[in-house]
Amino acid sequence: MSATPWQIADIPGPKQAHVLRVEMFPKIAKTLKRPLMVVGSRKEAFEGNDLEKYIVELAKLMNSPLVVSPGLCKNFINFKDIKVICMGIEDLINRLKDKDWKGFDDEGNYDAVIFIAGIYYFQSLMLSTLKHFAPHLKTFSIDRFYHPNAEFSFENMSEKRWIQEIKSLVGMMKSSLH
């Protein structure tokens, strides 16, 4: 594990993400009032595991709708009891950066965005937009890459280790709620 940008040259500037450890997240999550979980289109991340299931569980535990990048919508549309929004990520980021956006429920913008399974270089730039132009939002990356443009990010880790971490995150979130 290391907290250097996954793509070695992706060094944006002096402001880089705080390292996020799994055990920190449940506590932080409790402070979030309107979180939004965003699933990117890194299709390989979904091979040979039940990642969709864990993502849906996490979103439910946070009481967050789930925005899914169009390339992966089909993997999510059959889940029940969760609002799945199929939307281009750039379009979404453009709305999130507008403080006055009404959100998907007309109740206003969100206070935190949690990203997972994005294509690294694309995700990095979308996080950069939010870092610069959305001071009203906290951004988290729980992907398997250290994303310097997030406010909090997991460190780099292997795919296998990452799935384990996501599983334990779900477990910790559950016990922190009970």
């Binding site: 944006p12 500037g13 730039l125 937009t129």
Partner: peptide, 9 residues
């Protein structure tokens, strides 16, 4: 215009 700075500096 929607910007995604590749570099902050």
């Amino acid at each position: 215009p929607f910007y995604s700075p590749l570099c902050d500096m």
